[in-house]
């Protein structure tokens, strides 16, 4: 285990109006960790994930990526980035896969994938193209590269979204319920791709409702309840012998 965590979150709080959604969550992810974040709806797991790369501004807390802390200052209510350049550079290394894919519909599959490495990272075109082809091959949609997102099924779109994230060579990938918007028969193909990524040793944080997947793939499991970490441990510990009552009830309700 490395000495410095790839990603460390300390005491993250988030308040929407009067509602405190996150009540101080801390988490460390080392290189190669696959951490599943579980919890019933409303437990704050998606909000937590979105706070990591500041899609939501946390109300309080610290974010440390590769040993350097993200520079945050107090805005009107929430903490806001003090240094946009630092934030964009950090985001370039943290991939994010959305529940609703969020591909750009006016661009082809290939254009969606090469946009980031080509125009954000400014890598040479031949290199980016070759890598994009390789990624499309890997997620199993090479033959659809000139089609538009609307012409693909949900599962295919999500695989494109994963390829778009991978094209940036992220050090950590965050998955926000990547299969929740999919028809049941399409869930498997996306989980298959994610399983391969985990096997490659990628560092991943996954918010999911797929319990079997979380159990098999994760190195660690975190169970959130009402904005707090209720239980954390290895999949064997959390699924096999949960200590807290709520976690026990949650596990038994889904299995």
């Amino acid at each position: 285990m490395a000495t410095t965590p790839a990603l460390e979150l300390i005491n993250i709080h988030k308040t929407f109006g009067d509602v405190e959604v996150l009540k101080g969550i801390s988490l460390k992810a080392y290189d190669g960790d696959v951490i599943s974040i579980l919890g019933s709806s409303g437990s704050g797991k998606s909000t937590f994930l979105r706070c990591i790369n500041l899609l939501e501004n946390p109300t309080q807390g610290q974010m440390i990526f590769n040993g350097s802390e993200l520079d945050l200052v107090r805005g009107d209510v929430d903490l806001v980035p003090n240094n946009m350049k630092q934030l964009t550079q950090m985001r370039q290394k943290i991939g994010f896969v959305f529940q609703s894919f969020n591909l750009w519909p006016h661009m082809t599959i290939l254009q969606n994938i090469v946009e980031g490495p080509l125009h954000v990272l400014k890598r040479p075109k031949h290199e980016v193209m070759a890598y994009a082809e390789h990624l499309l091959e890997k997620v199993g949609i090479a033959e659809k590269k000139h089609m538009y997102p609307n012409q693909l099924s949900g599962g295919q779109q999500q695989r494109v979204a994963i390829a778009r994230t991978l094209a940036m060579d992220p050090q950590v990938i965050l998955f926000d319920e990547p299969t929740s918007a999919l028809d049941p028969e399409l869930v498997g193909e996306v989980l298959g791709v994610m399983r391969n990524l985990a096997d490659e040793g990628r560092t991943m944080l996954i918010v999911t409702h797929e319990m079997n997947f979380a159990r098999e793939v994760s190195s660690d499991v975190v169970f959130l309840h009402q904005g707090k970490v209720e239980e954390k441990g290895t999949p064997e510990e959390v699924f096999g012998s949960p200590k807290s009552e709520r976690c026990k009830a949650f596990i038994s309700s889904v299995f």
């Binding site: 550079q89 370039q92 943290i94 959305f98 894919f101 125009h119 954000v120 778009r164």
Partner: peptide, 15 residues
Amino acid sequence: GEVEACKVLGMTKVQ
């Protein structure tokens, strides 16, 4: 969501 997809790739506002 499409705007967020830009943000998470680390694009600047101008990009």
